[in-house]
């Protein structure tokens, strides 16, 4: 193998490992983040329902806000996913 092709091989290896690291970081944030956001959405909706019925001692407004914010994050994730499919 000539020095040039050795360098090329090393640089392509580096790019694979860099991509790999990026996938691990981005995939972990996206996977765990989406699960947390959706759980907070479920929690917010259930707690807000409890508050409206007056049981459980939970406050309505913070739970509605929690559900709204986490719901927006989930909707944004879905829209991004569809964009990725169409554009990717």
């Amino acid at each position: 193998m000539s020095p040039v092709s050795v360098l090329a091989a090393e640089s392509s290896d580096l790019s694979v490992w860099e991509q790999l690291l990026e996938v691990i970081v981005v995939g972990s944030i996206a996977g765990i983040g989406l699960s947390i956001a959706f759980s907070l959405l479920v929690r917010g909706i259930i707690q807000a329902g409890n508050a409206r019925r007056g049981d459980g001692g939970s406050a309505l407004l913070p739970n509605v806000a929690l559900a709204a914010v986490s719901g927006l994050i989930c909707v944004a994730a879905v829209l991004f996913a569809v964009y990725e499919m169409v554009d990717g």
Partner: peptide, 14 residues
């Protein structure tokens, strides 16, 4: 859900 997010994130990274 987390699997779908990982797949699409990986696709985004290429």
């Amino acid at each position: 859900g987390s699997g779908a997010a990982v797949i699409l994130a990986a696709t985004h990274v290429g």
